[in-house]
Computed example of a mutant assay.
Amino acid sequence: MFPYKAIRKMKQYKCLTKNSSLASAVYAPFYPGLEVGRYLFGKFDGSVKDAFALDFATWLRGKPEWDRMFGRDHFFVAGRITWDFRRLTNSNAEWGNKLLNLPELKNMTMLTIESCPYANNDFAIPYPTYFHPSDEVEVFHWQERVKIVKRRYLFAFGGAPRPNDTRSIRGELIKQCKNARKNHCKLISCRPKDDMCNSPAHIIKTFMNSKFCLQPPGDSYTRRSTFDAILAGCIPVFFHPGSAYIQYLWHFPKYYTKYSVFIPMDGVKNGSISVEKVLSEIPEQEVSDMRDEVIRLIPRIIYAKRKLDTIEDAFDITIKGVLERIEDARKKILEGKDPSMEFPEESRWKYYLTGKVDKHEWDSFFSKSQQR
């Protein structure tokens, strides 16, 4: 969710206070995504890219609220993926700024649409969808609608190939979709000449007509399409665990097989896996159970226009997660512990996913050489 929308929604909460000494958490009104977006494309000096980030850190240190927990009770919303704020060197050619590598920011909680598996100071929240209900009735009606719709396609994919990215499997998925049996795959082309990906009605209609929706990585791990698929009651198919399973820890079930299918991307890349075959062999009852779980997830991934009375939306769940994280840090500080030393940053994804930092079957997906 974009920062200005977060502020508007936050102002509706009854638990706000203007007395910062009484606050459990402090929201920092900063728009880092809008700021860095001005310098991502083109030749800009590193000092120019970092100027506002450094000013933000200086401004925070000067506030009386900062001294209470040195930022561990502060949070803000980025509006872009984490990689736009993690420049490691002073090279002008390197992407983004160094906002999240500043010492002050490492203490804070940043809410972003894609988090870093190797860092402890950002948490992923759902991409905004096209659906922003005003009340619970709209949500319930929509859930009923996507539950009863007849799905004529086995799977669908909306996207464009990445011919210059040797790691991408999009080309293979597009080929498999085109070669699938009749009514087994529906392709939404996002090529500039026939781009249908900017048509919300076309995307949602296609996903509502499909049992499964393919969600391969693109320029980064995650895709907005994942949330369009869930909104349409279409079971997401992931090819990299970084696309969802280690991202939306507050919003998605820990047991990913309840709501999605995982197909390792290497098998697609080398031609040993047929997506059509894998999906067509899933028992119908299992498909039905997964779809029911996806539909139950809908309230958790939408941003309502106002605070709903009986259900929690993505915003409510996010704020709850932030408050629990801050309370945990506060408790550790009172116990004389350092909240940042609980686990190595490079094992962050494993710790939050399993509570352990032992060897994991997904380690190969998150080696530094695979970093997107």
Rank of each mutant, 00 (worst) to 15 (best):
F70R: 12
A51P: 00
Q143D: 11
Y130P: 01
G71A: 09
P161A: 07
L40Q: 12
T58Q: 02
Y127A: 03
F140H: 10
F155N: 04
F85Q: 05
Y118P: 02
A160E: 05
F70V: 03
E94K: 07
V146M: 08
F131E: 15
V77K: 02
A156C: 13
W142F: 14
T89N: 07
D55A: 04
R162Y: 11
D67T: 04
W59C: 01
V146Y: 08
E94D: 15
A53W: 00
Y118L: 10
E104I: 06
F85E: 03
R162Q: 10
N121L: 07
H141W: 05
R86V: 11
P133I: 13
F56C: 09
D122Y: 07
N90C: 04
P161Q: 06
Y130K: 10
K63P: 00
G62M: 07
S91W: 02
T112I: 08
N92H: 11
F56A: 06
K98T: 06
N120K: 15
E136F: 03
G62F: 03
C116N: 15
L60S: 06
C116D: 15
K106M: 07
V149Q: 06
G158A: 09
D135G: 08
A124M: 09
A51I: 01
N164Y: 02
T112A: 12
R170I: 03
E138H: 09
T82D: 12
K43C: 09
H132M: 09
S47K: 11
A156N: 10
R61V: 02
F157V: 04
R80N: 09
G96P: 07
E136S: 12
L105H: 01
L99G: 01
R152H: 13
D135Y: 02
Y153E: 10
R162M: 12
L99C: 01
T112V: 13
E172C: 01
E138L: 09
V146F: 09
S91V: 00
P163W: 04
N92E: 11
L111E: 03
R145P: 01
F75L: 13
G46H: 10
I148D: 09
W66G: 05
G96D: 06
L100E: 04
D73Y: 09
R152I: 14
F157W: 12
A93V: 08
T58R: 04
K147C: 01
P133F: 13
C116S: 15
R72H: 14
N97A: 03
S115L: 10
R87D: 07
E138R: 10
F52V: 01
G79L: 06
R170Q: 02
F75S: 13
F123P: 11
R87W: 06
